[in-house]
Deep mutational scan, measured.
Amino acid sequence: GQVNVNNTTYTFPTPKLAKEFAQKAAKKYNLTVHVSGNTVTVK
Rank of each mutant, 00 (worst) to 15 (best):
G1C: 15
G1I: 13
G1T: 13
G1P: 13
Q2K: 12
Q2I: 12
Q2P: 12
V3S: 13
V3T: 12
V3Y: 06
V3F: 08
N4P: 11
N4H: 13
V5M: 12
V5R: 12
N6S: 13
N7L: 15
N7H: 15
N7F: 15
T8S: 08
T8G: 08
T8A: 08
T9G: 03
T9P: 02
T9R: 08
T9F: 07
Y10G: 01
Y10I: 10
T11R: 07
T11Q: 06
T11F: 11
T11P: 02
F12H: 01
F12Q: 01
F12M: 02
F12W: 02
P13Q: 07
T14R: 02
P15H: 14
P15L: 11
P15K: 10
P15A: 14
P15G: 06
K16W: 05
L17M: 12
L17A: 12
A18G: 01
A18Y: 00
A18Q: 00
A18W: 01
K19W: 15
K19L: 14
K19S: 07
K19E: 13
E20G: 04
E20R: 12
F21N: 01
F21H: 01
F21G: 01
F21Y: 05
A22V: 02
Q23T: 10
Q23M: 11
Q23G: 05
K24E: 07
K24R: 14
A25E: 03
A26F: 07
K27N: 08
K27Y: 07
K28G: 04
K28M: 13
K28P: 01
Y29A: 08
Y29D: 05
Y29F: 08
Y29Q: 07
Y29N: 07
Y29M: 06
Y29G: 09
N30G: 15
N30P: 04
N30S: 06
N30A: 07
L31D: 05
L31N: 04
L31T: 07
T32G: 05
V33G: 01
V33E: 00
H34F: 13
H34K: 08
V35G: 00
G37V: 03
G37R: 03
G37M: 04
N38E: 03
N38L: 07
T39N: 05
T39D: 03
V40P: 00
V40K: 00
T41L: 06
T41M: 07
T41W: 06
T41I: 14
T41N: 04
V42E: 00
K43R: 11
K43V: 15
K43L: 15
K43H: 14
